[in-house]
Amino acid sequence: MKKLVGAAQTSQTLSLAAMEEASRLGLREADIEHLFLALVISDQTAGRALRSMGINLDVARRAVEEQHEAQLALLGVDASFPGAGRIVFHETGGYEWSKRAYDLIARSGGKNKNGDAAAVLRELVAEPSGLITGILHRLGTTSDALLEGLTQIDELDEQTAPTAARAKGSVSGSTETFVPAPVEEVWEFLADPTHIHKWEMSVGSIDHSGQDAVLGMVWQGHAPTRRPDGKPVKVRPEFRRRSVELVQTHRPDRIAWRFTYPDTSRSRPILTEFILAATAGGTQITITTSWFRYSGWRRLVGLPLRPAQKFLVWITLFQTGSAISRAFR
């Protein structure tokens, strides 16, 4: 079961990153080169192995582009791909995997394979078209060197990630995400209330008078009125206003925000905590979200819904994590 959940989460994370990469190139089908780029920014050992070999996102994107252009030149076609734009995945639709990329991810979770990003990377470097080999060659490495680096990192990976302290009676969920930017820059981003709407989906805008963020300060947020793709969102009146309080700040590695709905007594405050750590090629963020459980009959009613709740927490954390990462790509 654990493997199944892990493999599902890995494939979800890689799919999003790969499709985001495809989206900035004006494509709606993610193929193996986009999967490669997704692995470069993976928070798992596969990403660390690639980045510790000097393969960061910018370098990898350039190698993919150059590989395609060199191949076009080989055919005698003197054309270049349109310049890449920003990521528009969340504003557009119709995305899918290419057949070969889809099959490759499915194989990485097969028998005797654990479906994590490292398993996907192992499958990827063995893909038969030669495209990935060509890209790796451009990056000054080979499949074998990469696999060796991966094995070394896997062996070293005994350390456990820091986690936020958990209060008794609270529900919490935690996720890891990689951001291709230095810790200090990521901290600045997370500590700025005017950026909250970029990573917290329930906030569309924040009233901000330009003051510096200090501990205990509260801002008023408003629910988004439109989805990223432009469609209107219906929000019940009591959930339209949101208070956001800065409850913990420790430059450059910790920051926490508390979200409440001031117009309803039925909702509990939610704490979102970020722990930042430098890692190869950027920052590893541990995001923890927690809130206090209801007591009494509401708790009993909620019991059968726990698995659904767990999934929902993961989805929310996943969206927050990927939105932060996207802001730096």
């Binding site: 494509l27 191949q71 080989l74």
Partner: peptide, 14 residues
């Protein structure tokens, strides 16, 4: 050559 044709197809799709 075949790999290059795949790149050409990608360009056409874009």
């Amino acid at each position: 050559g075949l790999r290059a044709v795949a790149s050409l197809r990608l360009l056409a799709d874009t």
